[in-house]
Structure formats: C-alpha cells, structure tokens
C-alpha cells in the first residue's frame, strides 16, 4: 500500500523524465532521420511529448491547444506539403547523392561539411551552456512545479484573452489571416498561369 502510494506520488516525476527522454531523442531524430517523412513523424512525437509536459505543469488548456495546433494542423501541413509535391523524392534523392560524396554546391566536399558540423555543434553547445550558466548564476528559485490538481485554466485564460490581451489577440487573428492569404497566393500562382 505504502509502496503504491509512493509510486503514485512519484508518477509525475517519472512521467516527466520519460517524456523528456522521448522529446529529446525524437528531436534529435527530426534532423537525423534518413527520410523526410520520418522526420515529420518524429516531430509529431516531440509535439505530443511537449503536450504531456504541459499537462504535468498544470497547463491543461495549452496542452490541448498544443495537440490541436501542432499535431493537428502544423504537422499535418508538413506531411501534406511533403506528399502533395515531390518534395519527398527530391529531398531523398539529394540526400543520397550527398551521402555518396558528390558534394554540395556551396560547402564543397565532405571534409568541409564535417568542419561545418563541428562549428554548428560548437555554437549550439556554447550557446546552450551559456544560457544554462546564466540561469544558474541569476539565482533561479528552486521550486516544485509538479502537477497539483486545481481548477482548469481554460476559463481564466479566456477571460484574460478577451480583456487584457484583446488587441494582441485580434492582431494575431489578422496575422493568421494574412499568412493564409499569403500562402494561397504563393502556391496558387502557378495554376493561374496555367489557366492563362
């Protein structure tokens, strides 16, 4: 009984670490998976994992939003884009050609690419390390932030969104509209030319 109680108390922590591992491994695979379609599926996994962490952090509305927007819309958009055009073949073919060592246009040679990878890695590690160091030095308060069942966040968020953040909210919708129109204009141009 007491063991089970302990386990139940530990469950969020364990869940967090499991999710963290899933997120990081999948994120790594997004850039390293052989095929672009696989990368897209790993991306979905990252999004879902982050949604799980949101739940653990008591942001239930956001977790729902995350699943809807990222998994439901953005990831699907990626997959559609990959499938509708021949992106898949082009990118896979090019990746293979690249791996065979024909070299890329600008980087020139596999040796250069290795140098580039090292440089990119150094910058990334340096940046992340410095951010962590800055956080450590800035005296971030340690505090348990695990899930504590409370009232849902949907209602408070809605209240704030439609009062305090009304103007940004409306602007965001305009941004979305503009993006939508822009995307349609960009993609539809070719068909227009065909009609002519």
């Amino acid at each position: 009984m007491s063991f089970l109680d302990g386990l139940a108390a530990l469950a969020p922590t364990i869940g967090f670490f499991v999710l963290a591992v899933i997120i990081l491994v999948s994120a790594w695979m997004v850039s390293h998976a052989r095929r672009i379609t696989h990368a897209a599926f790993f991306m979905v996994l990252v999004f879902t994992g982050v949604a799980g962490v949101f739940v653990l952090l008591g942001a239930d509305f956001l977790a729902g939003g995350q699943v809807l927007v990222y998994v439901g819309a953005i990831a699907v958009m990626f997959l559609f884009a990959i499938m509708v055009s021949d992106l898949k073949e082009i990118s896979d073919a090019e990746t293979r050609a690249r791996g065979a060592g024909t070299g890329s246009a600008a980087a020139g040679g596999t040796g250069t690419r290795k140098v580039w990878f090292v440089l990119a890695g150094l910058v990334t590690v340096g940046f992340a390390g410095l951010v962590l160091a800055a956080l450590a030095r800035s005296g971030l308060p340690a505090g348990a932030v695990g899930a504590a069942a409370g009232p849902g966040t949907t209602a408070p968020i809605a209240r704030e969104l439609f009062t305090t953040f009304l103007v940004p909210f409306e602007l965001a919708s305009v941004v979305l509209l503009v993006a939508m129109v822009g995307a349609i204009v960009l993609v539809a141009r070719e068909r227009e030319e065909e009609v002519e």
């Binding site: 440089l119 990119a120 910058v123 990334t124 340096g126 940046f127 410095l130 160091a133 800055a134 030095r137």
Partner: peptide, 20 residues
C-alpha cells in the same frame, strides 16, 4: 544563423561577466 547565435553567445558571456 551560426553568426547570429555566436553573437548571442558572446552577449550572454558579456552578461555573465559584467552583470551576474
């Protein structure tokens, strides 16, 4: 992008050095 983040890293370094 590398230049951008390298620059950000340098700014962070300066921040750590002087302010924190």
């Amino acid at each position: 992008m590398v230049a951008l983040y390298a620059g950000a890293a340098v700014s962070l370094l300066a921040l750590l050095w002087f302010l924190l």
